[in-house]
Write a protein that binds this DNA or RNA. Structure first.
Lengths: 251, 251
DNA sequence: CCCAATTTGTTCGTATGTATA
DNA sequence: TTATACATACGAACAAATTGG
């Protein structure tokens, strides 16, 4: 029979992991910053270095921390590369076999087509766990690879969470959208869930992507999540798969 | 003595991992079988138990081995559950948020529509790394969820690799296709790479899935791989996303 | 029901190797 | 070269799950 288990496992390294996560989430260690060395951390937590390392191992695997031998352990930062490898899964059509980790790695050109303050509709509200009608920012981007328009992104984020965001600040961002979230608002996207379906091109999508209206397009709904699985962004990407594929590895 | 390239990592636990993999691949330990206990394995490899455990850790993470406290360590076996969680990423349409690991977990009804011996076309040959014109088996399946046809799978496998496969043996298989590969041919699918695109329904797909010809469908090309990245199966799934989504988690 | 044997899981501490500045 | 920090390897002790008596 299923035993209620008084919640937390008494496992030490998970306790240490939780404490590390709390410090990172609270920005006591900011993105990019170096953590104290492992022996000091172990001592400060009152555990052996092996236990400390096991906690860090898991956070490294979850892309929360980054370790470099001889240098130290760092809080992971968003970058163009991270966006490309973790969150941008569109590639020029190509037949198998594909080399291991061959990823073309072309960073898309991003044009912001619109930035509006709106009220959350039902879908967006459910995804972001806000109330219908709550204020949200809706951003439209067009991404192109090698000059070819490939996806039309409609991004929805809570105005309450991104208090003070303006079109100007959004347009003048230096790097990726997730870098903006992280550096300007202290909100870190850790992972995302996606659901894809095939849809006929709407008039708008057809115009933005330069395909005939009604042509089959891939529609990917992405929910980006932060610490504790808290939703950060709801994004619908409409992808022209005439010359590109949407990638996924299962394993 | 055989000296490996000086550049090769001299890391002990990877050496142990390679030896374990070799024994598993050679079926010296068959799928489902129990390995010797860790202390014995460590001794037989001449390493400490910690080193042995690290090698096993990685194989567990790659779904090659399964550990159960108090019972032992086993060679992973294909099953309906494994297929569902690792390789079947279609779910009824549903809005976010989705509970963690909530996966509906309905196993699809599978109907085999055709089993043919053919010659590899260019795409299939490139994927399976055989020559164009080499003999292959081509199987067509229809998968349904809750009585609704959802995907039309066209599976291509090398006849040389699956020597002795017949329509009868295929139809009379007990479990999933990957279970058949594993139990009858000793070929284990470890992971897969997928590429998705949107396509208009062909006449055949429209008939099989019960949708209008030309309706947008999701076309997923999957290459299933075994030990050493060797290709096993090339599969094109044509998915009706009228009431279902294709899932993907990036993290 | 409890006990004992078996097997993996966790934690400890130490020593040594390797990458970096 | 030296100092620093992470990476690998060792082995021991105890905890927790499983199974069978």
């Amino acid at each position: 029979m299923l035993q209620p288990r008084p919640t937390a496992s008494t496992v030490l390294y998970r306790e240490v992991k939780r404490k590390l996560l709390a410090r990172i989430e609270s920005q006591r260690w900011a993105p990019g910053q170096t953590l104290p060395r492992e022996s000091d951390l172990a001592q400060s937590f009152g555990v052996s270095i092996g236990t400390l390392r096991r906690a860090v191992d898991e956070l490294v695997h979850e892309h929360v921390l980054i370790r470099r031998q001889g240098k130290g352990t760092f809080v992971a930062q968003h970058s163009r590369d991270r966006f490309l490898f973790q969150f941008f899964h569109v590639e020029p059509r190509g037949d198998w076999p594909l080399q291991p980790e061959q990823r073309a790695a072309e960073f898309p050109r991003v044009e912001t087509l619109a930035f509006e303050r709106e009220r959350a509709d039902e879908t967006c509200a459910a995804a972001l766990r806000v109330r219908i009608g709550d204020p949200v920012f809706v951003v439209q981007n067009r991404l192109s690879l090698s000059g070819q328009p490939v996806t039309h992104d409609v991004i929805c984020i809570s105005a309450a969470l991104f208090k003070g965001l303006t079109e100007k600040r959004f347009l003048e961002r230096a790097g990726t959208v997730y870098q903006l979230y992280q550096t300007e608002f202290g909100i870190t996207v850790l992972r995302a869930e996606e659901r894809a379906r095939a849809m006929p091109a709407s008039r708008q999508a057809a115009r933005v992507l330069g395909v005939p209206q009604g042509a089959p397009l891939l529609e990917v709904h992405r929910l980006a999540l932060s610490f504790g699985g808290r939703p950060v962004e709801y994004r619908v990407s409409t992808i022209s798969t005439r010359m590109h594929d949407y990638l996924s590895t299962m394993g």
